[in-house]
Design a protein around this nucleic acid. Structure first.
Lengths: 336, 336
DNA sequence: TTGAAAGCGCTAACAT
DNA sequence: ATGTTAGCGCTTTCAA
């Protein structure tokens, strides 16, 4: 057995109350006893039991983090940001996969409640009513990342997807492109699918470019769908000179498909991605993309939840962070 | 306040012991009381407090997972495997970044000890003596992934790096290549750096191909070092027809550098990577690589630790899993 | 400056 | 079949 506070108290000839005091720097003891206690702690290698502490303090210094898929390229950046700040503030994080599955999400949420996490960060999934209900029941702060909730006053941090997509397409237009296709996300996806499509549409309208349905393909944000999307566009929109992909993964799929079909990027077709994942930089050719500051989004989410935990107050609900266009080599200028 | 077992007991007109019994399916109550208790639990939305349970059971059903960088492409696969199995067995995982930093690792280990995790999975870092000492002090099972320990009987799961590298190079040789360069990992890295280099050397020797120091460049497993490594090789080993990169990230760097320099892969130079990351499949051209079953390695690690937690016994120490060569499009056959 | 004791929410041994 | 009670390791009154 590892030593407990009792063992330390005994060996130091003091009461456990005194040990607790020096442990928590509460004062109310002589320098002498402090020394003695610290000495024993060092000798025995005593470490306070956070579980016991948690039981009495009702604080575990642990937060739960939910991802649809922890191992996705997208999750990684956010996770890194959360972890970094959590570590600074001596918090631990419990991560959970929801698999984008409602039942599993509920189960995971219940588990986190049982484990008494001090807060939960919920990432890149739509917030269903059932989630909100159980979250309310948990009575712990919740922050959304790359998600949003209109009907509950839950703070969220995300970029402005509409504007970001709008600017991506306007960037293409600025490069002289007129025949711009889009590989979008899921049409049902209100968080990233719809607004990015709207942004595309909006930019075209603003520049009086007619919308052509055949130039729009819907994927699921993943690589394969980008690959297939590109091939589909090859059929339906042969004259396109540029593609706006609603995710970097899909853009990479497009790049691969182009390579497969002997189509050169950006010489024959330009491609702009979305997300600014690390791998966009590693693509061939390096991918021009709309960057979301994923790491910062994670850090900010942690700061928000920390604030809620410590003050009990609900901060500004809408935390819109800045996107930016990262120019690399997958888009070329088209001469008229 | 959320309801406690006391509240449930009171409302159900039974003792807390009875509530505890039905909660844990221990028997010793009538169907009638069971019904009543369950009814109250449903009504109140009661959830047992895992912290209190942990205090008494000395089990938290939580394991700690350490990565040098949780957000790396490499960690992701392992993490996914661990999480999957942890979830099946109703365990939670606490993930920690060590940043490859000794002090931080020690701090994190201490934190995990305080939080009373039931075990720790330590991934892809060399195991220093200090770690082993503090781990021994924690008195919880430890499993290593993509790492190893000779001086402590800690179970580990990894592939056979030497053989895997050997086979990669032999694969290249089988394709007719003789002038094979290598972009290796860090020379000090005993886990992945040295054995993969040795494998390269061994394969050349076996096939009576003289080793040429100028064909060997050392990187750090990351993308940039692969990029630079490729450029360095362009200077020192112009006649190479193939490159064995000790990581997929470095292989991707090489691919990018080749593209930049107008060198076609695999027409001019073939490239084989190592790891089998998801992104190797997304590369242009799709990367031929040596696959480590990362997800399975994570699952296996979890199973091992679960076994240790539940039985208290130490399983087979060496768990060598199978690697395999994934043939894609970055290696071509050379005619003599 | 220090200690005794209550109690956080739960399990488990012991009664009944 | 059910209740009482003693802790698990700690923090925090309240006394001394």
């Amino acid at each position: 057995m590892n030593p407990t506070i009792k063992d330390v108290a005994k060996r130091a000839n003091v009461s456990i109350a005194t040990v607790s005091r020096v442990l928590n720097n509460l004062g109310g003891y002589s320098e002498n006893t402090r020394e003695k206690v610290m000495q024993v702690i060092r000798e025995t290698g005593y470490r306070p039991n956070a579980v016991a502490r948690g039981l009495i303090n009702k604080r575990t210094r642990t937060i739960g983090v939910l991802f649809p898929r922890v191992s996705s390229f997208f999750s990684s950046g956010i996770l890194q940001g959360i972890e970094e700040y959590a570590h600074i503030h001596d918090y631990s994080i419990m991560i959970c996969n929801t698999g984008g599955d409602g039942n599993r999400t509920l189960k995971v949420l219940e588990l986190l409640q049982e484990k008494q996490v001090d807060g939960v960060i919920f990432c890149s999934s739509a917030l269903k009513t059932e989630y909100v209900e159980i979250m309310a029941g948990m009575r712990v702060p919740v922050v959304l990342v790359s998600s949003e909730s209109s009907y509950a006053n839950i703070p969220f941090v995300r970029i402005d997807n509409y504007t970001a997509a709008f600017e991506a397409v306007e960037y293409l237009i600025g490069k002289g492109h007129r025949n711009i296709a889009m590989i979008g996300g899921r049409q049902e996806d209100q968080l990233a699918g719809v607004p990015r499509l709207e942004g595309y549409l909006g930019a075209l309208r603003k520049h009086h470019i007619p919308v052509d349905e055949r130039r729009i393909i819907y994927g699921d944000f993943r690589y394969e769908s980008g690959y297939k999307g590109f091939e589909a566009l090859l059929e339906s929109a042969r004259d396109m000179t540029a593609i706006f992909a609603a995710s970097d993964e899909m853009a990479l799929g497009a790049l691969s498909a182009a390579y497969k079909h002997g189509i050169r990027v950006p010489d024959d077709i330009s491609v702009i991605g979305f997300d600014g994942l690390e791998l966009s930089r590693m693509a061939v050719p390096p991918l021009t993309t709309v960057r979301q500051p994923l790491v910062e989004m994670g850090s900010l989410a942690f700061e928000l939840i920390l604030e809620m935990i410590e003050t009990g107050e609900i901060p500004e609900q809408a935390n819109i962070v800045h996107h930016s266009i990262v120019e690399r080599d997958s888009v070329r200028t088209v001469e008229d």
